[in-house]
């Protein structure tokens, strides 16, 4: 798959169909995002790792791709994405930071092992060009752990989990959808500066709620957590509720509006068949 992807990207660059290819580069055994502007550099291009290509630049609070688009407006950039990268990109586009029309989205599918490692229910992008679609593991089985607990057991479980929190903000910083200029997680009314661990469950409640209709289930927050708090347990419970209650799945269509921020009734959405 990798050879084909490199060849395809080299074609795009040499025929000047795109100004740059944004993807992952492996160097000295480490993989990081890189903007390829010359076809000869594409030997370093790699895929199939857990490294995301969409994230927010801080302190600018700007998505990386939106930063590219600001630097060279109107120019076509090819982006190599997995399912989660594409969904993250769409969520940011919904909020007006990315112009999807100016992107050539090249998707590749993750294999079953990767999907299992990320608990990813949709391990392939809509713009699938390389690789075979595989079925992701079921969310139902994953969240059963929390669903089957009593309310009191859940409280005890989360108190223990959140007592480990060191307030590194890694869950927010690594989130591809967290682009708010003013972050409620930094609000002293919810988690005063200097208190560790943050009060149960204020600090986390803010993040959970605010992402309930935009979480794309990429698992970046869990990967970034130095204390291994299983944040995706709650995120998946909420995603399910948003699907059932508001008939909405995040990351599907860049033209859709996030339901909790729009005044459209859930019923109307269902009737429109979205």
């Amino acid at each position: 798959m990798l050879t084909e992807i490199r060849k395809h990207c080299a074609d795009l660059l040499t025929r000047k169909q795109v100004a740059a290819v944004y993807g992952l580069r492996e160097r000295d055994g480490h993989t990081a995002p890189y903007l390829f502007t010359r076809a000869e550099d594409l030997d370093g291009l790699t895929v199939g790792t857990k490294v995301p290509v969409t994230f927010t630049l801080r302190p600018a609070k700007k998505n990386i791709i939106s930063a590219f688009q600001e630097k060279c407006p109107g120019q076509k950039i090819a982006v190599l994405v997995r399912g989660c990268d594409e969904r993250g990109l769409y969520e940011v586009a919904k909020r007006g930071q990315i112009q999807v029309a100016d992107l050539a989205i090249i998707g590749y599918a993750c294999d079953a092992d990767q999907a299992r490692a990320c608990h990813c229910p949709r391990p392939h992008p809509q713009n699938l060009k390389f690789g075979e679609k595989v079925q992701g593991p079921s969310n139902e089985a994953f969240i059963a752990k929390i669903v089957n607990m009593s309310v009191a057991e859940r409280e005890a479980f989360w108190r223990a989990q959140f007592s480990k929190c060191i307030k590194c903000y890694g869950c927010r910083n690594s989130c591809p959808v967290c682009i708010c200029k003013e972050c409620w997680m930094e609000n002293d009314a919810f988690s005063p500066t200097g208190w560790l661990p943050p009060d149960f469950p204020m600090f986390h409640f803010v993040h959970f709620y605010h992402l309930s209709d935009s979480c794309i289930e990429c698992g970046a927050c869990v990967d970034a957590c130095p204390m291994d708090i299983p944040l995706n347990l709650i995120r998946k419970v909420l995603s399910k509720k948003v699907q059932e209650e508001l008939f909405y799945t995040a990351g599907q269509d860049p033209e859709e509006k996030p339901p909790l921020a729009s005044r459209e009734e859930a019923k109307e959405r269902l009737e429109k068949g979205i």
């Binding site: 480490h30 993989t31 990081a32 995002p33 857990k50 490294v51 630049l57 801080r58 690594s174 990967d223």
Partner: peptide, 8 residues
Amino acid sequence: VGVLPCKD
């Protein structure tokens, strides 16, 4: 422009 953790 920013910091990015190194997963590997």
